[in-house]
Design a binder for these strands. Sequence first.
DNA 1: CTCCCGATAT
DNA 2: ATATCAGGAG
Length: 218
Amino acid sequence: MVDRSKETLEEKKARVQKIIERLRQVYPEAKCALNFSDPLELLVATILSAQCTDERVNQVTVELFQKYRSAEDYARVELAELEEDIRPTGFFRNKARSLKALGQMLVTEHGGKVPDTMEALVKLPGVGRKTANVVLGNAYCKNEGIVVDTHVKRLASRLGLSDNSNPDKIEQDLMRLVPQEQWTLFGHLLIWHGRYVCQARKPKCGDCVIQDLCPSAE
DNA sequence: CTCCCGATAT
DNA sequence: ATATCAGGAG
């Protein structure tokens, strides 16, 4: 199907455009699956989404966002109480510790608001480039990077778009292949496709619309 | 690299 | 039984 050994950079960029066009047709609704109504809610939901399905996060945040309406609310709450409020999302001790420290830092360093730059976001506790990219792309409509989560990591590898295993290096590889204005869209499309077709355990290559563009297709 | 967390799918 | 789920810190 795809002989990647003798594919030039330009050919690979063209293949990426075909991938984007096809996935756009299949997933016109692809967007952030986490429910939120402001940057703080999205930041919190994204931290909770680590090693947890979006569906479960959305269940927890219904009540969480009614109780915690500002950075101050996270900064003030007793750690044990916050742990119980987010327990079903897993890693609840680490996440609760991050959220409380995050709330405190937002209050002391950013006037209680979520910053809108990569530099400031990744300095926040529990926030790496993946989480920062989700907030920048979906709450602030900025294409400062590409979200590399478990789905994007897996699909970038299977599609032969990166040979690296480090998420930051994968992101750099992808940013060279995708025009900046498509960075956020690209992440959503790969995540949708990874969730429904190109699954981790048993990819449904028979149902895949980019099978002929994939060096790993069976 | 390991650890953190537990529900669900295979 | 084991792998996986919109990761990040030590």
